[in-house]
Amino acid sequence: MPSDARAPLGLKLAAFGGLAFLLAPIALIFLYAFSTEEKSFQWPPPGFTLKWIGVTLERTDLWEALVLSLKVAAISTALALVLGTLTAAAVARSRFFGRETISLLVILPIALPGIITGISLRSAFSLLDIPFSTWTIVLGHATFCIVIVYNNAVARFRRTSGALIDAAMDLGADGLQTFRLVVLPNIATALLAGGMLAFALSFDEVIVTTFTAGNQATLPIWMLEELVRPRQRPVTNVVAMAVVLVTVLPILAAYYLTRDGEHTAGADR
């Protein structure tokens, strides 16, 4: 509903005020990462320094948490890519008994509060005597990452004409060639975008993880402990800044990928 009219002043103030409310706290993170103050959250910062970045880089516990987080996010994303794409293909391309149930099932882990997913997985692990490991974390993460990949893939499958698959087979491509030469290139950007979002979500997840990690620490778990019992504020400040950068950059990339995909995949319809 774009309009060429000028916005009323009150609306403008409210809108930009709201935007400032949304962005200011994040900007604050970047400032505090360079503060010289180490015992409190003093504002304005008494001075600025780069030394905490160096201190943070030398912390082995942080590196271990980071490696675990990356490992979990990578495996969960890979699993979610396979499961989400297969499900999206079935739901978008055909009608079958239970189709509605499956599309509901996929969004359930994200629709229900994370604490419910977390506690039910934990009690299932303890009922079945499954010890905590990287794989228990992955199980929880992949469960809610599937929906992210699924949503991206299902939208792309719906936009991509089914006649393309017919055309490929008509021209002599067998099932595998059709997948490799036509299906995959057409959904690739959607999968990349979905994969990035899933990765970011997994990398950041804390609620389900507190139930499925046992005494392993992912980066968010490390942060949570710092939040509950602050011990090393300057290091936490730097980690917070790094986490913002790591999660936001893939999001921006994913946005540009799906935006471009809109005219390539829909061109023939």
Binding site: P25, L28, V206, P220, M223, L227, T236, T247
Partner: peptide, 10 residues
Amino acid sequence: WSSYLVKVYA
């Protein structure tokens, strides 16, 4: 999309 914990921390 910023980290949930970072937002709480902010």
